[in-house]
Amino acid sequence: MTKTLERAAGIQPGTGARSKRRKNSLTRQRERIGMLASLPALIFVMALMFFPIGFATWLSFEKTNGVYYHFIGIKNYTSIFSSPLVHQVFRTNLKFLIAIPIVITLGSLTSVLLYQEIYGWRFYRLVFFLPSVLSASVTGIIFRTAFTYDGPVNSALKLFGFQPINFLVHANSAIFVISLALVWAGFGYAMLILLSGLTAIDTDIFLAAQVDGAGWWRQFQYIVIPSIRNQLVFVTTINIMYTFTSLFGFIFVMTAGGPLFSTTTVDYLVFQKAFSSQDMGEGSALAILVFGIIALLTLTQAKYLRTDAQD
């Protein structure tokens, strides 16, 4: 990233070696224009993203209901770390990770088949991506309706002689249904990302492998997977982040966090603390914790991405 920027700066007339002495007025004018052009966007982001992060950090050391503020040090953090509810909520989040291997497996298999231009591949590409453009509340309501006690899924179960299951009132079956919705809504996105990696592979390598007698499965294992490593890392981290930060819409319309907090995730708990209850200090401490997890994931991803393939 730095290199590109410096290179870009080097192209500009008037900078480079000459700028070391004294910038001519034209260059200075161009710099002023660049600054003015990016200022409005920067102000928005400073005011509504950077300032809130700082504000949230400060709030996390306060006891507050939004009107009165009272400094209590790290008490919010100690109380969330020792709270059984927070532990349970994080365990719930971990359970939702089950959707990720399914998304990755489905995504990589379908993307390879599309890459091979299997019959009807354009149709599949559009159809599999279709759920990705739907709102989480739309997907959530569709799945909730499908899995209610007298819904279509239970009718199908009864047809095959099984007992109907009350999916959404038991914690684990509710998590199963929500994960299914996540897979349904998410694997098309993974598929497209992986497909973009596949199209970059040099096709000669497959010819070479065929000469050496490698079959379809071996080519998939030893050529395809290593070649789309970057995309796999990206899709995995994005999905983990998603699990910790963006389940709100699904939970909100499908179970509202219940029964008894058993499907409440971290982002849903932050929402509840912000809105329903008056515990904004503890909510902020939780939000900062989520922020830390996301930062850690982003840095890990950057470490595992092969930089030579970038930019």
Partner: peptide, 27 residues
């Protein structure tokens, strides 16, 4: 139109690109 510090402005945008709304809703 790069200027002194435009690199940091650019980094500032990239840094908050993936910021989840969970972190921001309360403040």
């Amino acid at each position: 139109y790069p200027y002194r510090g435009s690199k940091y402005v650019n980094w500032a945008f990239i840094a908050v690109m993936l910021l989840p709304s969970t972190v921001l809703i309360i403040p």
